[in-house]
């Protein structure tokens, strides 16, 4: 699990994290370090618990056991003001965007600025429109309601909201799913820019291997509740791990058996 960066203190340190829903074990003793300023990608089959992992770190789901440290501070079991203080470090793009449907698009993007940081509305609106422009959405879109947007537009608004407060740590849950290939590339560049220019730490989930190679420094593969492989994304083709090989090449035959029955 350790690699060249092990001499630094991790931004996020996950140890022995387990989470089950009823009898269904989703995460089983997950260990992962994410270092400051790096972009880590989590890959894994659909339903393998990638989104659950992100929600555990954010304290949206309570793990059954294990420890999660952010900047050396234990966050499992944290509540109230303390948890809010930690959460101010984070930005999150939800898999289904999770826009507030009673607010306009720009109010969604400005939400963290106005409510979280107490900035004046006019100033927050200006920042929100800048972030919207960065994800390719014009000022006219800013005054629409989320229900009036297409799926890909919603995703980009969610992305703009996640980066609007310029957080230290940003989680992207499938940022490019549902976008056309060109916009996908634009978003990938935006993510890289956030990490490189703002010095943010990023944890992303994607199924798109081309996008994965563009946005991440390291990749971790989640399988059956465990991180079975971690390594630099550049070396993912030489992982010598049959599970990883099968996954990144998208083959139906291999050690990973999908629970399907032929028609």
């Amino acid at each position: 699990m350790n690699d060249a960066s092990s001499n630094r203190t991790p931004k996020i340190k996950i140890r022995g994290l387990s989470k089950a829903f009823g009898d269904k074990v989703v995460l089983d003793n997950v260990n992962l370090d994410i270092f400051p300023g790096e972009s880590v990608l989590v890959i894994g089959g659909s339903g393998s618990g990638k989104s659950v992992l992100l929600k555990c770190i954010l304290g949206l789901l309570h793990p059954d056991s294990g420890s999660i440290e952010v900047d050396g501070e234990e966050v499992v079991g944290l509540m109230g003001e303390d948890l809010d203080r930690i959460r101010r470090k984070f930005g999150m793009l939800f898999q289904n965007a999770a826009l507030f449907d009673s607010l306009t698009v720009w109010e969604n993007v400005a939400f963290g600025l106005i409510q979280g940081q107490g900035r004046p509305r006019a100033e927050a609106r200006k920042t929100a429109l800048e972030k919207l422009a960065a994800v390719g959405l014009g000022e006219d879109v800013g005054s629409l309601m989320p229900a009036e947007l297409s799926g890909g537009m919603r995703k980009r608004v969610g992305l703009a909201r996640a980066i609007a407060t310029e957080p230290e740590i940003i989680f992207f849950d499938e940022p490019t799913t549902g976008l056309d290939p060109i916009m996908g590339d634009v978003i990938d560049r935006l993510i890289v820019k956030c990490v490189k220019q703002l010095g943010a730490t990023a944890l992303s989930i994607t199924h798109d291997m081309a996008s994965a190679r563009r946005i991440s420094d390291r990749t971790a593969m989640l399988y059956r509740g465990n991180i079975i492989w971690v390594g630099p994304t550049a070396e993912i083709d030489r992982s010598d791990n049959p599970y990883v090989d099968q996954f990144i090449n998208g083959r139906a035959e291999g050690p990973i058996q999908m629970q399907v029955r032929a028609l």
Binding site: R87, F100, G112
Partner: peptide, 25 residues
């Protein structure tokens, strides 16, 4: 209905991540 929809569409989770307490808001 409104708060329930916000719950099942993860809008309440989103409020939490934006450091806004859903109880307050």
């Amino acid at each position: 209905a409104e708060i329930g929809t916000m719950r099942v569409t993860e809008q309440i989770d989103a409020l939490d991540t934006l450091a806004t307490n859903p109880f307050k808001y």
